[in-house]
């Protein structure tokens, strides 16, 4: 095989790839910023004792967990404007989709963490007169969040990888830029190798952190990761 690698031609456009990476991170971080609190709220509603709250929220969460994210993205990008008459640009559609989509997964991470805390903790707090929301905030969540960290980071990795779908609605993320450069330079091998390395450079440290935390938490018996 006599393929001649030529990274030079590709590296000339490295700033374009970097811009793509920044855009990828922008979507990921915004989706986290909206998705995590939304997920916590959804988890709390799903844990409500009132079935009129618990059941619809549960169905909604499951809906977003069991439909392909690309379908959701297309729906928000193409169908929502038809319904509402409001045009939505690729950036907003992407942030909207991935905030909601990831919140459904974070909801389950939060719920898993919360229900993993023994009933005795709720009871001890209740017995000194603490209200439900005080107990949640001061006793349950601090313990649950610690146990959730590996599962949470796992979802962050998943999320960032899934954001590559935004290229399909022409949002200039890393994959979209790589694709463009590949087409203009006829160097797909080099371009996608570099793009892969860029994703790897961000996600590998997170993945290693998960590994390390899991080992640590397994020792203290505190993980809810699978």
């Amino acid at each position: 095989m006599g393929y001649e690698w030529d990274f030079g031609i590709v590296l000339r456009d490295f700033d374009v790839l970097l811009l793509g990476l920044v855009n990828t991170l922008k979507i990921t971080i915004l989706a986290l910023l909206f998705g995590v609190p939304l997920g916590l709220g959804a988890a709390l509603l799903r844990l409500s004792s009132n079935p009129a709250v618990r059941i619809p929220v549960g169905i909604l969460i499951e809906f977003f967990r069991s439909t392909p994210p690309i379908v959701q993205l297309f729906w928000f990008f193409f169908a929502l404007p038809l319904l509402t008459g409001i045009e939505i640009d690729p950036f907003r559609a992407s942030v909207l989709t991935f905030s909601i989509q990831s919140s459904a997964f974070f909801a389950e991470v939060f719920r898993g963490g919360i229900v993993s805390i023994e009933r005795g903790q709720w009871e001890a707090a209740k017995a000194i007169g603490m209200a439900r929301n005080q107990t949640l905030r001061r006793i349950i969540l601090p313990q649950a969040v610690k146990r959730m960290i590996p599962a949470f980071l796992e979802r962050v990795i998943e999320l960032m990888k899934t954001t590559t779908l935004v290229a399909t609605v022409s949002y200039a993320d890393l994959l979209y830029q790589a694709n463009n450069i590949a087409q203009s330079t006829y160097r797909p091998l080099e371009v996608f190798t570099i793009a892969a390395l860029m994703y790897f450079a961000i996600l590998f440290p997170i993945s290693m952190t998960v590994r390390r935390l899991e080992r640590h938490l397994a020792r203290t018996g505190e993980t809810t990761a699978h």
């Binding site: 023994e118 005795g120 903790q121 009871e123 001890a124 707090a125 209740k126 017995a127 000194i128 007169g129 603490m130 001061r138 006793i139 601090p142 313990q143 610690k146």
Partner: peptide
């Protein structure tokens, strides 16, 4: 009512993320 009635459980149920002092100060 609960804040005027103390309860001690078989399995202690201390808050593990708090020191002894913080446990006692929580209420």
């Amino acid at each position: 009512i609960r804040s005027h009635v103390g309860m001690v459980f078989q399995h202690f149920n201390l808050f593990p993320h708090m020191t002894a002092r913080q446990n006692v100060m929580e209420g």
